[in-house]
């Protein structure tokens, strides 16, 4: 079995932050897609396969929570990590209830971030694995009949 490359999408309206964090992630060989708004995130997801989205809670226009809801509706298997300030911890809790994988306080420790990123990616891969197995089982059954 061959491994498909994994993609991370980074969503935040702070362009300098997105750029710098992307550079850091690229430095450890991640493929990062930077976007600067919730709307752009959803737009981009239509054309690009992504494993994990790192999503800022506080953004002008469509905020993190709204974006999360839309992602979960359209791409239920996608894992989302929320970035939140300490004053908006309610948003983080709400995000978890809406299906976010986890949250991080901003500015976050890089090691924490990569750890959560790997966990999220692992979970997505496990899910995909199970789905594939289930599909295979279905195929087998229908072949027997």
């Amino acid at each position: 079995m061959f491994k498909t490359p994994s993609y991370i999408m980074l969503v935040d309206d702070e362009e300098d932050f997105v750029e710098m964090l992307s550079l850091r992630l690229k430095e450890i060989d991640e493929n990062v897609i930077p976007v600067y708004s919730g709307e752009a995130c959803l737009e981009k997801l239509k054309e690009q396969d992504v494993d994990v989205v790192i999503l800022d809670v506080k953004m002008p226009g469509m905020d993190g929570i709204e974006t999360l809801q839309e992602i979960k509706k359209q791409f239920p298997l996608l894992e989302v990590i929320m970035l939140t300030g300490h004053g908006t911890i309610e948003a983080a809790v709400q995000g978890m209830k809406l299906g976010a994988f986890d949250f991080l306080f901003k500015p976050a420790d890089f090691d924490d971030l990569t750890a959560k990123l790997n966990q999220a990616r692992q979970r997505k891969q496990d899910q995909m694995e199970r789905i594939k197995k289930a599909e295979a089982a279905m195929l087998l059954r229908s072949a027997k009949i």
Binding site: E14, D16, F17, M20, L21, L23, R24, E27, I28, G85, H86, G87, K106, P107, A108, F110
Partner: peptide, 21 residues
């Protein structure tokens, strides 16, 4: 505090990147 947090994050990631390099 809110306003400072974003520039702080940028400083942190920039310095972190240089460290990685």
């Amino acid at each position: 505090a809110h306003e400072i947090n974003n520039p702080l994050a940028i400083i942190q990631e920039s310095a972190g990147w240089l460290q990685q390099i």
